[in-house]
Structure formats: structure tokens, C-alpha cells
Amino acid sequence: MTDAKHLDKMKGTSRRAGRKIGGSVCIFIFLTLLGIFMVFPIYFAIINSIKPVQELFLFPPKMYVMNPTFDNFKDLLSVASNLWVPFSRYVFNSLFVTAAISVAHVFVCCMASYVLAKCTFPGAKFFNELIVLSLLYTSNVIYIMQYMVIAELNLINTYWALILPVIPSTMGLFLMRQCMSQIPNAMIEAARVDGASNFRICWGIVMPNSKPALMTMIIFIFQAAWNTTGGSFVFNEAYKPLPTIIQQIGAAGLARAGVAAAGVIVLLIPPVLVFVIAQRHVIETMAHSGIKE
């Protein structure tokens, strides 16, 4: 048997204990039924976006489209092309801000989570507790205080105000920390004995073995960054990201109901793409991850 064939066999669930094909089929059917319930509202959002206006307000609402049309998307584009600030600027803002946040967040938080998960140093426990506390903390005035801090730093109406506050997002960090704590200490000790610095260990050994967590972290941060409206920190139209303008276009009342639906769908596309690509990577790791104690 060749290696490739052997690997192929390993990839499936065939090596696992007590797998019956019937059980898998049952799981599939159960998940499909539940899945229909989950995507039902999404399906309506999608068909609303390709309905012509006269069909949108039909009662009872139809579950299918009689004359599918892309007019709503065309309208969205034509409204968007007559703006005071060119539409491409909003697109650029969103892409730039999202890319900057994602890259910086991954870099900054992966290092921090490695240290928090795998190093013992004075204060480690305190910082770990602090992360959880910050996740649990909720306050209605926190945005006011954040505004004051950002204003004090003279960052209002800059890209920095959109980017910097999101970088230390603790959700991704906490996930990464939790997943890194599963990596065997022996592996890190071995690298340390060989003279690797903490920095090398983090990026050379721990990160390649944390791929599922990394991909999940990217999904979280991309979604958060992409949906930033920056409402309270940026007042200059030229720095506002895409969701702000799409919401404004959609908020123009009944006449734009279809356009609003189209806007929701357009905004949904990039996160879904990132999600699918990232999840593919998560699943690939299964085939060749072998951390052994």
C-alpha cells in the first residue's frame, strides 16, 4: 500500500471506533432538518433582495420569487455612485481598516496568548484573570469613556480611532490562550533546551500547532472588524467604513426596502467567504496534525 493511499484511509472516519453508516446517515438527516430551521430567515433575506418592489409588499408574503431581478443591487450601486464622498472610498476604508485590524490583532494577541498560556512569571495569573473579567464586564457608559480617551489622544476622525481600540479584542485572545494551553509542555521544554527564545517558540512551534484556533480567531476578528461602523469616533464622512453608508442608504424608508435587503446581502458576502476559506483550513489540519505527548 502506498503512503498516499494509507493517508487517504486515515482521513476518513474508518479508523475510528464503532462507526456504523446508519448512524452517520441519521446524524446527517438530523442536521439537515435543523439546518433548514437555521437558514430559513437567511433564505428570506436573500429572496427579498431579488424581489421586485411590487412583490416585496405582497400579502401573504411569498416563499419564492416570481420575477427575480437584480434591480435592487443595481439601485444600491446607482445610489452609491452619486454620493458626496465617492463610493470607492467607503470600500477602501472598510478593506483597509479590516485588513489592518486583522493582521495587527493576530500578531499582537497570538504573542500575548502564548505568554499567558505557557509561561509562568510574576503576574501571569493576574493577567489571565483580567482577560476573563474584561469579557464579563458590561457598562452602558464604557463608550463615553472610550470616546474621552480617544479624544484625549487626538485620534478622533482618524483611521487610528477605528483600528486601535479593536486590536486588543479579548475574545480571540481568550480562545487562543485556551487552545494553546492544550499544547504539551514537553514540546516547549524541548525547544527551550535547544536554546530557542520565547519569540521563536511562539511563532515556530506553538503557532503552527494552533491552526484551528488561529483560523477561528481570524473568523471572529474579521467579522468584528468588517461590521465596525465607527459611529462615535469618526465624524468625517471620508473615514467612514462601508456598513455606515449601506445602513444610511437602506434607512430611507419603504421605497428602499428592497435596496436595504440587497445591502444586507452585499455586506454578508466577505465574512462568509473568509469563513468558508478559514473553515477549510481548520478541517485540513485534521489530516496531518500529530501532537504527541
Partner: peptide
């Protein structure tokens, strides 16, 4: 080295989360 690696996160976290939380 641990503190150096934690620093970028900690600085941003302190400015944009810890200080506003303490103020609130």
C-alpha cells in the same frame, strides 16, 4: 522576554479597555 511579548497587547488593552473601565 515574556513581558516584552505581552507589552503590545497590554499597552493597547490598558489604554482602550482598562482605563475606560476604571473610569466607568
Amino acid at each position: 522576554s515574556c513581558y516584552f511579548m505581552l507589552a503590545p497587547f497590554l499597552i493597547l488593552f490598558t489604554i482602550f479597555t482598562v482605563i475606560p473601565v476604571i473610569m466607568s
